[in-house]
């Protein structure tokens, strides 16, 4: 149990009726959470891909005469402190949020899986050393560390993605390692070793395919956290730099205008909330679908 919560992800799955027999896609479509979350995510993805045609204005076009206008037909979500259209900026902001969210999680997963598989497979001192390394990372408050690192080393998009991705690897590494440990005693691993498969082959051909469900679930649940992290850094002025509009940055922009222009902070934050809820819904649902009994946390 301790292990589960520590990995910091989301909650224990509920014991829902097992529907193992049906094919995967049927089970996925049958899961309300996956469907609801995925619908929102797909819509967001579409907004990101077609931002150019969906957004009514250029997100960076300033009309200084139209600063801080409330929601109207012309600007459904109002305008900001430089007279830019908030709706257009929210739409374009999906790119940063999804982009940073998914790419940083990809990094998390690659590093986490690598370390987790290596530690679990090798065992012994290698495992001990790698896990102590993971423990070191786990005991540092991640957001503070990121704030320091990004402030010091600057915030270009690629670095930012790398930093956020790296900062989350310990949780992923632990989960993967635990799964590898549970797979190691299984017969097919022993069989592969007996017929002389190299360790690399065992890891890639035999272990990895069996890790896919847990990796997918864990990755999905981490996307939301990564999006929130980027937004938090943007709030402190350290996120993705302009001209790309970012939701966290927009919320921060609105701080000084809470009284005169509530819409500047409110809508991007709402968008953030909805997208993160959606990723968590999908993650929860996937976990139920893949492995309802196991109750793994992220």
């Amino acid at each position: 149990m301790a292990e589960r919560v520590r990995s910091g992800g989301a909650p224990v799955a509920s014991l829902e009726t097992v529907t193992r027999r049906r094919p995967l896609w049927r089970r996925l479509l049958g899961n309300q959470r996956v469907v609801a979350g995925a619908a929102v995510l797909l819509a967001t993805l579409a907004a990101a891909l077609f931002a150019g045609s969906l957004a009514p204005y250029d997100p960076n076009a300033q009309t200084l005469a139209d600063r801080l206008l409330g929601p109207t037909a012309a600007h459904p979500l109002g305008s900001d402190q430089l007279g830019r259209d908030v709706l257009s900026r929210v739409i374009w902001g999906t790119r940063v949020s999804l982009g940073v969210g998914f790419s940083s999680v990809a990094i998390t997963i690659v590093i986490g899986t690598g370390i987790g598989v290596a530690a679990g497979y090798a065992g012994g001192w290698v495992d001990g050393l790698l896990m102590r390394f993971v423990d070191v990372f786990l005991s540092i408050p991640v957001f503070m560390l990121l704030l320091t690192v990004v402030a010091i080393y600057g915030s270009n998009v690629n670095l930012l993605i790398a930093f956020i991705g790296i900062s989350a690897f310990p949780g992923a590494a632990r989960i993967v390692r635990a799964d590898v440990l549970s797979l190691m005693p299984r017969e097919f691993i022993a069989a592969a070793r007996v017929i002389g498969a190299t360790p690399a082959r065992v890891m890639v051909r035999h272990l990895l395919p069996n890790l896919v469900p847990i990796i997918v679930v864990s990755a999905t649940l981490r996307v939301g956290a990564a999006i929130l992290t980027e937004a938090g850094l943007s709030y402190f002025g350290l996120g993705v730099p302009p001209p790309a509009p970012t939701w966290g940055g927009m919320v921060a922009d609105g701080r000084a205008f809470l009284d005169v222009a509530w819409w500047v902070s409110t809508f991007p934050g709402l968008a953030l909330l909805v997208v993160v809820i959606a990723t968590n819904l999908v993650g929860d649902g996937l976990r139920d679908v893949f492995d309802p009994r196991r109750q793994h946390l992220s």
Partner: peptide
């Protein structure tokens, strides 16, 4: 409720509460 609880950005939640209950 709990889903919203751990999806909500702290900084935004704080600002919204300030806007409503303080401002």
């Amino acid at each position: 409720l709990s889903l919203t609880g751990f999806s909500i950005p702290h900084f935004w939640f704080a600002l919204m509460l300030v806007m409503l209950f303080s401002v």
